[in-house]
Design a protein around this nucleic acid. Structure first.
Lengths: 250, 250
DNA sequence: ATAATAGTGTCTCTCAGACACTATTAA
DNA sequence: TTAATAGTGTCTGAGAGACACTATTAT
C-alpha cells in the first residue's frame, strides 16, 4: 500500500485538527503474574512527560498506516515482534487537556500475547526502554498522560471478559495443557478455580483442538491443545461463579 | 470550559493530522420497531456522499468540545434535544480510504433514547432532514461512508448486550411497566419471552424502583417503575436462553 | 510403592423456562 | 359475568461447583 503524496485539496473542515494517536495495552502472564508492557518516555525536557512510564503507542502515520487496526499491529510488531496476537479495540480517549501539546484523541487497543521466550530465568526480555511490569504495580505508578486510567480500563475489561470467554488462551504459547490454561485463568482472576468444572467448560466450548501429549516436570503427561480460531475468543453461556458474583453485589 | 485561541506552538508531530469526527448511533423503539435516527447528507456536489442517509455526526470542534464524550452529547442534543440519554462508546473506525477527503478516524457512540413525544399518531417527529428508520430497512440502504458497517456493529452490540443487561429500559419513557419493558425486549431481540422468567429476572436484578400503578387501555393496572441508576445498566448473571443459544452454535 | 500430576464421576443446588394458576380492572 | 391484562406458584431440566475418585508417569 504505497502512500501517495497528498495532492492539493480544498480545506475540508474549518476546525483545527486534533492530534491522533494509537496506544496498545499489551498483556502477558509471566512468572505467574499478569504483566503489561510499558515504555519509558524520552528523558528530554520537551517531551510532555519526560522519563515517565507510558503505554507503547504514538501518532498515526497517515503515510504508512492503512487503518487504525494496522497502526496498532505495527506498534505491537515494533515492540514485541509478534505477528499474530489477539488484538481488540478497547476504546478511545480524547479531550482538550489530556495532552499538553493540544487537543488529542487516542485509539486504544489491547493485545494478549504469550510470554517472551527466555534463555534460563524469565527476566528482562523486553525491548530496550521498555519492561514487563506486574499490573498492580503498574497501576500504582504515575504513568504519563491519562495512561493510568486507560490501563485500569483495560484491566477491568480483561478481567470482565475472562469470566465468560476463552481470552486467557491467547496468553499462552501453543500448544498448552488444560492445567496450564487453568493456572492462567487463576492468575488473571486472582482466585482458584475448580478443576472439574473448568475442564468441562473448556472442552464443551469446542474452541480447542488436541495437539498430542506434553510431559511436565513431574507426574502424568497432559494433553496439549491449540486454539481452533485465533481470530476470536469463545464465549461461554454463563460467567464463572455467577451465583457468588450476584451475591457480592450487596 | 472556555476555549482559548491556540497560541503559537512548535509543531508536535511531523505527520499530517487525520480528520477526526464523532458519530452517534441513536436507537429508539417506536411503533414496536427498533429504529435508528439517520440524517440526509446535504445534496451538494462537494459533499462526499450527497443526498445519502448517514449517521448523525461531524467533525470535532476543538474550540467547544471538551472531550469526545462531550462532543457526542452535543451532537445528540442537537438532534434530539435530550439531556440524559444512555450513551456508551461503541468504538472507532479509521482508515485512509473511508472518507474521500482524507485519512479520517471517527469515534462512534451509541445512544438509547425514549421514543419522541407525539401528538396523535407516531410519525415524523424527527428534526428536519432526519428520520427514524427501522433498523433492518436502514441496513438495506446504501448509507454514506462506512456507516452501514458501523450501524451493523451497533445493532450487534445492542442485541448482544440486551441478552444479559437492562439496556432496553433506557428505550422507554419513565415510568414504565414490566409488560412494556418485556415488549421492548421482545422488539429488540425479535422473539417472545416468558413472562414469569422475565419478571423474576428484572425484579431480582434490583435496578428498578416502584413508581405507583399505571392504568393501561384495558385490564388490570400495572406497577410503574423507574430506573435506579441511569448512569449504568444492570448486568444479569446469565444470558437469556443460554441453553438454546448454545445449541444453535452447531 | 510412592509422590505428583492429569483427568473423571457423582451429587447437589441454583436458576431459567414452561405453563397453569390467581388477581384486578373496566365494560 | 366476561374479557383483558397483571402478576404468582410450581415443576423440571441443565449446568456449575464441590469433592472424591481413578489414571498415568517418574523415581
Amino acid at each position: 500500500m504505497a502512500a501517495k503524496k497528498p495532492a492539493r485539496r480544498p480545506p475540508v473542515s474549518a476546525f483545527e485538527r486534533p492530534l491522533v494517536t494509537v496506544d496498545v495495552v499489551i498483556f502477558t502472564v509471566l512468572d505467574d503474574q499478569l504483566k503489561v508492557l510499558l515504555v519509558r518516555r524520552p528523558d528530554v525536557a520537551l517531551d510532555p512527560h519526560p522519563g515517565r512510564w507510558a503505554l507503547p503507542g504514538g501518532f498515526i502515520n497517515v503515510e504508512v498506516d492503512a487503518s487504525l487496526h494496522h497502526c496498532a499491529l505495527r506498534k505491537l510488531r515494533e515492540k514485541t515482534g509478534l505477528q499474530t496476537p489477539y488484538l481488540e479495540q478497547l476504546g478511545s480517549w480524547g479531550s482538550a487537556t489530556r495532552d499538553p501539546r493540544g487537543w488529542c484523541a487516542t485509539h486504544v487497543y489491547f493485545a494478549l500475547v504469550p510470554p517472551p521466550e527466555v534463555g534460563e530465568k524469565t527476566a528482562e526480555t523486553a525491548p530496550p526502554g521498555s519492561a514487563w511490569i506486574e499490573v498492580a504495580m503498574a497501576l500504582r505508578k504515575r504513568l504519563a498522560f491519562d495512561h493510568a486510567e486507560i490501563l485500569a480500563a483495560a484491566v477491568e475489561r480483561l478481567r470482565g471478559k475472562v469470566e465468560y470467554t476463552s481470552l486467557p488462551a491467547f496468553l499462552l504459547p501453543e500448544p498448552f495443557t488444560l492445567p496450564q490454561l487453568q493456572r492462567t485463568y487463576e492468575t488473571v482472576l486472582g482466585r482458584p478455580m475448580d478443576k472439574s468444572a473448568f475442564r468441562k467448560r473448556m472442552l464443551d466450548a469446542q474452541f480447542l483442538t488436541e495437539a498430542g501429549p506434553i510431559a511436565g516436570d513431574a507426574g502424568r503427561a497432559a494433553m496439549g491443545y491449540r486454539i481452533l480460531d485465533r481470530e476470536r475468543a469463545a464465549v461461554f453461556p454463563r460467567t464463572f461463579r455467577s451465583v457468588e458474583v450476584q451475591s457480592t453485589k450487596d
